[in-house]
């Protein structure tokens, strides 16, 4: 474990806490893409298949449980809770995320560490996580105004993988045989997708203005 990876995990955890706060405090999921949340639930379920077979550390196991349960709770709440469900932007959350799932699965069948069920699904989860934010970014562009908690949620979510990139650089420099090309390249694509969001977020912060993404 290094400080970059720990900062990344904490930033990721904060993003989830901000989203839970928004949904439970405001009893609203307006501005949140259910499709992105469903993709994240799929990412964690397919990535942490080793939860009960490989014990890395208490921290690792705990965080996996937190990510799986929180992502499922958010999807369940957005689909099930009548009060929250009413605020879901159903008519603009229309990105066809099934294509993302299919594309990532085909890619995982072609590019993986080992051709085993667990490794192919692990690669699938890495590729899917890289593109899972797309329905959310599309929804924010369509909805125009972005409320503070939603903006902070996306900001922390984007920042976490940027910390992981620093972690991979650090591990590459300090560990003899460290090569994680699948995670590194996907992580770069994932962070790059947030580039324009980061830019408009910085502009709105600098001008102390409301965050608006151009359509």
């Amino acid at each position: 474990m290094n400080i970059f990876r720990f900062a990344g995990d904490m930033t990721h955890l904060i993003s989830i806490l901000v989203l839970l706060l928004k949904i439970y405090a405001t009893k609203s999921c307006s501005g949140i893409s259910l499709k992105t949340q469903e993709l994240y639930a799929l990412v964690f379920l397919t990535r942490y298949l080793d939860l009960f077979t490989d014990f890395i550390s208490l921290y690792n196991t705990l965080m996996k449980l937190v990510f799986i349960t929180s992502s499922l709770a958010i999807v369940w709440c957005m689909r099930g809770d009548p009060a929250v469900r009413r605020t879901y932007d159903k008519e603009i959350d229309t990105f066809r995320h099934y294509f993302l799932v299919l594309g990532c699965f085909v890619l995982a069948l072609l590019l993986h560490e080992k051709f085993t069920v667990q490794e192919v699904l692990w690669a699938f989860s890495i590729y899917l996580e890289a593109v899972a934010i797309i329905p959310q970014l599309v929804l924010l562009q369509r909805s125009g105004n972005v409320d503070n908690l939603t903006g902070q949620y996306v900001l922390f979510l984007g920042a976490y993988r940027a910390f992981y990139i620093l972690n991979w650089i650090y591990r590459y420099l300090t560990e003899a045989r460290f090569t994680r090309w699948i995670a590194c390249i996907s992580g770069l694509v994932q962070t790059a997708l947030y580039a324009d969001f980061f830019y408009y977020y910085f502009i709105s912060w600098k001008n102390n203005a409301k965050l608006k993404l151009p359509a």
């Binding site: 990876r5 995990d9 080793d50 890395i56 690792n60 692990w122 045989r177 995670a183």
Partner: peptide, 10 residues
């Protein structure tokens, strides 16, 4: 060795 095979990152 098995250590490398494990995905030790989240």
């Amino acid at each position: 060795n098995s250590e490398d095979d494990l995905h030790d990152e989240l």
